[in-house]
Design a protein around this nucleic acid. Structure first.
Lengths: 203, 203
DNA sequence: GTCTATATGACGATAGAC
DNA sequence: GTCTATCGTCATATAGAC
């Protein structure tokens, strides 16, 4: 296996293990074993465990665009142009929750890194949270100007909406994996959350 | 210092450090130093680091009642009796978020334990989440029977509402400590969240 | 109850052969 | 590019004196 490939493979293995057990809870030996190489190989490609962590953040930062594919989703942009509020928020909710569900490891990684307060993690969060709030907030402002939504701080509405989505996903990933408290499809959740929010902020 | 006192003190120190750096990120040496005793003393009172972890869960489980003081809050119970929906949800939101704010360490601890998937942690979550959903869900059912709220699965409404509260608190604790994205008081947040939810689910 | 000293093992990281 | 062997350090946990 070539250098680049091996490096990539070790990196992916590390992401997987960090997302399962956190940075401190994962040993370089485990990473090596899971990647099917010796521990020395890990240190050949990454000078230290910290360097491995930084490489992950760089990778994930560069993949940033792909973290929010729904911001360029055609159906969504169409709905926004038509000002079909329900379609807009339903699609945002559905795509976000589908993404969370299919990328649970990444969600866990973000939580671990947030808790562990690595310097670069906060930069990562800020960058993307700011973007989402602007994206949805701007749409709400437009609809307020249209007189379709009542006059409240747009970011509060975004906070409320993202709260529903993220909390629901976190429940499914962390606390209620068996769905004993609430067992609904992402479509049903998206429908309900979009409806609650829109009724909640309409004029 | 007597045995019981010292044990208590070590336990509290451990809770603080675990909440800051997680279980794996905290050493018994650090705990001993922070508690002002030798490392041997930690192991005299707790046979292992794992035993320390279990003792924390036991303690926190027993303190369960005090984790949700608002379920017995007089103002809230009054509002429920009067069926003053806004007062009910405003007070739930405000008390919950105030609690989160004053007990950020405990919030972090819960997140760490959820991520680290210790067996007893899930028991802890299940016990209390179930209780909250029943408490609020029952009220919503009553109001639906009154014809005041529309016919949706009560637990979905609870999920949406708890999502707003918890996500807002998590933002303040983890990602947006400086409040650069959204800087509002708990009162303002409670007012907005209660209003959004109630408009969102009223008939 | 509290300490110092230490055993035992794991972890991050390196050296050097192939 | 990959390995085995190993180093120094730190972590959990114990022994034994006071």
């Amino acid at each position: 296996m070539s250098g680049g490939e091996r490096r990539e493979q070790i990196l992916e293995t590390a992401v997987r293990l960090f997302s399962q057990n956190g940075f401190n809870g994962t040993t370089t030996k485990e990473i090596a074993a899971a990647a099917g190489v010796s521990e020395a190989m890990v240190f050949r490609h990454f000078s230290s465990k910290d360097a491995l962590y930084e490489a992950i953040l760089d990778t994930k930062s560069c993949q940033g665009e792909s973290q929010f594919p729904w911001t360029t989703n055609k159906v969504l942009l169409d709905a926004m142009a038509r000002k079909d509020d329900y379609e807009v928020f339903y699609n945002i909710a559905l795509h976000a929750m589908n993404k969370h569900q299919s990328d649970q490891g990444f969600m866990r990684l973000l939580l671990y890194f947030a808790l562990e307060e690595h310097a670069l993690a906060s930069k990562f969060f800020k960058e993307f949270v700011t973007r989402i709030y602007k994206f949805i907030g701007d749409y709400i402002k437009t609809r307020q100007a249209d007189g379709a939504m009542r006059d409240l701080e747009p970011n509060i509405a975004v906070r409320a909406f993202m709260g529903m989505l993220l909390h629901h996903s976190l429940n499914n990933i962390l606390w209620d994996k068996k769905r004993t408290v609430l067992n609904i499809s992402n479509e049903e959740a998206a429908d309900n959350f979009a409806t609650i929010l829109l009724n909640g902020i309409k004029k």
